[in-house]
């Protein structure tokens, strides 16, 4: 018996069926998502190349130039998404805190469901709401802003007569991404260890001080991740933007004029039906740029979260 065991090269734990099935399932899923991502990237790059290397003559033939459009499109995409985040993030954090720490339990639950419901509304509906409800409602406010604080570059005139401006789009986008940021932040805030909350309160912190001291720092990585998910949706949002804005390929910070920069995704949606030959490649190339922007933004967020990893409370 002894010689039989010593002759074996190394002791190996028996591999149980459940372990094997699970590890294979997990590995396969991981590989599949990488393959899908890679194939999307390969598709984008291969279809983009003709647009990137097109000669002047080809560009004139098709009437669409990648290099001529991409700057304003990138600007419009980031500008609209940034404005949307600016509106949505403070609101989302405040709502999440209200649900997790201030509201009585019954109201908190109801409000939580209502917020989750907002996430399920298709973006076409948001687009319609933007055109038919929001734009007419805010137009008088825009007129007032241009009249009274028009000296401020963002509010420069002439004011749009329809209210369908980049600011309206940003508000629609903000409402769209609000649920996802709120829902994730709420979950994170609820997970704040009771020990840390009590530590703050025992030091004589008021409720708000306790939140500043224990809840928000603990939730910081989660808030950043939630914001990134929201930003991803805002960057890629197509229908709502395409419906509300009358597009122009310009770079302009003015929020209230009728000429507004459009976004990459909306531009693709509006022009794709009529695009042909090189035009298709140009549109796909802009899609590749959107892909890269998202990648950069997410890496940046990872970097910010990791930089203070030792202080995250995960250890």
């Amino acid at each position: 018996m002894t010689s039989a065991t010593t002759s074996q090269p190394a002791l190996r734990a028996p591999r149980r069926l459940g372990d094997r099935v699970f590890s294979i399932a997990a590995t396969t899923s991981g590989v599949i998502i990488l393959v899908v991502l890679a194939s999307v990237a390969i598709f984008l790059v291969s279809k983009s190349v003709p647009a990137l290397v097109a000669t002047d003559k080809e560009v004139t033939d098709v009437g669409m130039s990648f290099w001529g459009n991409i700057g304003p499109l990138v600007f419009g995409t980031i500008w609209a998404a940034a404005l949307a985040l600016l509106f949505a993030v403070p609101f989302a954090i405040a709502i999440a805190l209200f649900i997790s720490h201030y509201a009585p339990r019954r109201i908190a639950q109801g409000l939580g469901y209502a917020i989750d419901l907002l996430a399920a509304i298709p973006s076409v509906v948001y687009g319609l709401w933007g055109i038919m409800v929001l734009a007419p409602a805010v137009q008088p406010i825009y007129v007032w802003l241009v009249d009274n604080v028009g000296w401020f570059p963002l509010f420069a005139g002439p004011v749009s007569g329809t209210g369908r401006t980049v600011l309206t789009v940003a508000v629609v986008l903000a409402v769209m991404i609000l649920p996802i940021i709120t829902a994730l932040s709420r979950e994170i805030f609820l997970q704040t260890p009771r020990l840390h909350e009590e530590a703050a309160l025992a030091l004589g912190a008021t409720k708000w001080e306790m939140i500043k001291m224990a809840v928000l720092p603990f939730g910081r990585p989660g808030i950043i991740s939630a914001t990134m998910l929201g930003l991803g949706r805002a960057l890629g949002e197509t229908m709502a933007v395409a419906m509300v804005l009358s597009p122009a390929v310009i770079v302009s910070f003015a929020l209230l004029q009728s000429q507004n920069p459009t976004t990459i995704a909306a531009n693709i949606a509006l022009n794709f039906p009529e695009a042909h030959d090189l035009g298709v490649n140009v549109l796909i190339a802009t899609g590749l740029v959107l892909f890269i922007i998202t990648l950069i933004v997410n890496s940046l967020a990872r970097f910010i979260v990791n930089r203070r990893k030792a202080f995250s409370g995960a250890n």
Binding site: H196, A199, A314
Partner: peptide, 9 residues
Amino acid sequence: FQRPNPFPT
């Protein structure tokens, strides 16, 4: 408290 609870952040 019973369990040490320095603020991890």
